[in-house]
Every structure is written in C-alpha cells, then in structure tokens.
Write a protein that binds this DNA or RNA. Structure first.
Lengths: 145, 145
DNA sequence: GTAATTGCAAATCATTTGCTTCGTA
DNA sequence: TACGAAGCAAATGATTTGCAATTAC
C-alpha cells in the first residue's frame, strides 16, 4: 500500500471517526496510522509496541473498542490469547489462514461463499446486524519441515 | 441426545483416547461425559462448575489441551475472553451464531460451503492439516428489543 | 515399579476499570 | 468552559506453570 493511498485512507477513517462523534486526538491518529500501514491484524500489545510510548495502553484499548463499535476496525478472535484488530474497509473482507505451529497469519482475499448464507441465517434466526468471521487453521510448510 | 447414544459416544471417545496414549482417569471420563451431554460449547470455567470439585482446574486445562491435540474435541475462539470446547465428531461440523449482546451461542448445522475452499487453500498455500472455524455474529431478537 | 497424572499454589498476561488531569470542540 | 479523552495505577480473570503426591498400566 503506497503512501498516497495510505494518506487518503487515513483521511477517510478520520472522517468516519468524526462523524461517529470521536474527537480527533493524537492517539486516534496514531492508532489509525499504524493499523493502516500494518501488514496484518495487530494485538493490543503489538500496537502498543508500534506506538512506542506515544499513548497509554488503556487509551489504545478504549479507542479500539470504540473504533470497533463504529465499524472502523474489525476485531478478530484467533486461537491466540489476545484479540487482533484490523482496518475494516467497505470493499474488502478478509478471511485468514493461521499456522497452528508458529501462529503466523496470512490474509485470504478469497471470494467468500458465506455472504449468501449470512442473509439466509439472518432471516431464519431473526438475528440482525449479522457479520461473520472465517478462519482456516493448519500447519505451514515451515512448521511441517 | 439420548442416554444410549451418549454412552456409546463416551465409549468411542474413551477408545480414541486410549489409542492416543491417554490413561483412563476419572478426570478424563468426567470431562468427556460432561462435554458429550452439554447443549453447547463449554469454557474451562463452565466445565469446572459442571464437574463440581471432582477434578482440579489445572487438570481439566491440561486434559483439554491433549484432547484437542488428538482431535477428540474442538477448541473455539469466540469473542469472549475464554476458549470454548466442544466434542468433535467425524460426521458433524458445526458453525456458530453468537449474539454480540448477551453472548448466547447457537450451533448451525448448515451445510458449510467452505469445505471446498479448504482443499483449494490447502493446495495453494502448502498448509497441511487444514480445518476451519466459521462464526456468525449478530444481535439476537431478545437483545434487539 | 515407573512414568504419566493430579492437585494445589503461585505466576502470567491480556485485558478492564477507577479516577484525576488534559485538551478538543 | 464543559465534556469527552488520556494517563497512571490498580483490579480482574482466564489461563499457565512448578512441584510434590498419586495412580494407571
């Protein structure tokens, strides 16, 4: 992802945050900047490391929660003990392939056949605001050596 | 699930455990018995509660890990902080529908279109022992009131 | 008899929360 | 200026681990 693109993504995200009623603080900007440039989902801890001591862990934590509520980011539950977060873009839905050995995460930009099911399940169950999370687990070539 | 069926499932599971080299202990039997009868996935804590003081939490924890390694049970990562476990049967793969409000879990015995993808991903990525986990999240009718 | 399991207690570690201070709108 | 947000410190709570005592094979 090039700089120009990353910049406009940051702008878009900040706009969405303002519309959601979030104040434009340094922590917000930095978190979004890091997440946008990240090659993959990040945990609270890895975000903290990437931010250095620019913002407090509790601040990051609370912002992540709000960002997820407002659908700016997506929260992922891998088999890891910690939650992973990644940007949520309207035109893109990633599923993931995770190695059960080393824990490495690859994103799969596959056309997920689940979207159809989603609508079906929604009408059968009466659940609203449906979304899904799909993960594939396996042993990567390295770990299989 | 009736008793006769539950009994034979327990037998089958115990057999698989023996083949895996696990000793037949009281803790093992009790954990399997509870999981087999459970209406849905259980956490370490709920398992502990169901077992009363029949076995120590650490014992349950270590057994769950081994049972998962030997594919007797399946571990699920919901957005809950805790891991959920459920029996794994050869002829059955459940996906789940979870309410983001109250956390209730329903299992979906749908024919999951992901199985096909799984093989495809396996050959593209070189990953082996692939399996997947699919969850739908949404707001249940109650919580939407 | 012996190596695998337990039980109990203590250590981790990722959150989560309370509260005071700061800064944006 | 008022109220949401940040920073700091302390509380949770679900795992994880160490080690001595048991127990299945």
């Amino acid at each position: 992802m090039e700089n120009a693109s990353a910049d406009s993504l940051l702008q878009d995200s900040l706009d969405r945050c303002r519309n959601a009623g979030l104040r434009r603080t340094k922590a917000l900007e930095e978190i979004l900047r890091v997440l946008i440039q990240a090659p993959g989902p990040m945990t609270l801890t890895s975000l903290g490391a990437a931010l250095g001591s620019q913002c407090d862990k509790a601040t990051v934590y609370r912002l992540l929660i709000r960002l997820e509520e407002h659908a700016v980011i997506r929260r992922l539950g891998f088999h890891d003990r910690s939650a992973h977060y990644t940007m949520r873009y309207a035109d893109r839905h990633d599923d993931y392939l995770i190695c059960t050995g080393c824990g490495s995460v690859e994103s799969l930009d596959i056309h997920c056949p689940v979207e159809v099911l989603e609508r079906e399940i929604s009408s059968n169950s009466g659940y609203t605001k449906l979304y899904h999370e799909l993960q594939f687990y396996g042993v990567c070539p390295e770990c299989a050596r």
